[in-house]
């Protein structure tokens, strides 16, 4: 079924089309959710809420980009909202206050599988993980991150720097064990 036809049928509440759309994108989207969540349970909730938003707002998709990209942005926004509501994270350090730890000459990141790397990212504190995901993987600028999370650009940068350091430590620790 073509994308356009699929969307039209979904808008008509055709359950088969809805299931097809879900199956087509859920694996990738669940991967995104896992990165943003701190555990599988949270990923389940984000993925579920995200797809409910996708189906409820499918009519607002303008066909200007890919449907996958639109669904992905919906998932990311759902994850952001999820953490905003939980208010479990805090951004309080300025970039100038940070003493960046030395980085290793050669990154051992490439020796990790995506799943292993994701498990390490999940161990990052909520704020670090959020900024790291948005900047490094999703490609958001610090200004965009600041707007979405209601923080300053500098705070976003500082969170990213700290996330990098924390992630390196986790990677080292994993390699040493």
């Amino acid at each position: 079924m073509e994308q356009q036809e699929l969307i039209e049928k979904c808008l008509k509440k055709n359950s088969k089309a809805q299931n097809l759309l879900y199956k087509r994108y859920v694996s990738k989207m669940y991967g995104v959710c896992l990165r943003f969540a701190k555990d599988k349970m949270e990923a389940d909730d984000i993925c579920q809420d995200g797809f409910i938003k996708v189906f409820n707002n499918l009519g607002s998709f303008r066909h200007e980009g890919s449907l996958e990209g639109w669904i992905r942005r919906t998932m990311v926004n759902t994850a952001i909202n999820y953490y905003k509501k939980s208010a479990k994270y805090a951004f309080h350090l300025d970039i100038n206050e940070i003493e960046i730890a030395g980085t290793t000459q050669e990154s051992p990141v490439d020796r990790l599988s995506a799943m292993e790397l994701m498990e390490l990212i999940q161990q990052l504190p909520d704020g670090y993980r959020m900024v790291f995901n948005l900047n490094v993987i999703e490609g958001y600028t610090h200004k965009e991150i600041g707007d979405k999370l209601n923080i300053s650009e500098n705070t976003s940068k500082s969170q990213l720097s700290r996330a990098r350091v924390a992630l390196q430590k986790l990677i080292k620790k994993k390699h040493n064990t």
Binding site: S27, Y30, D44, C47, A114, M115, L117, M118, I137
Partner: peptide, 10 residues
């Protein structure tokens, strides 16, 4: 590494 990364949802 995360490009095309997929996971099976419950």
């Amino acid at each position: 590494k995360f490009e095309g990364f997929q996971a099976n949802p419950p």
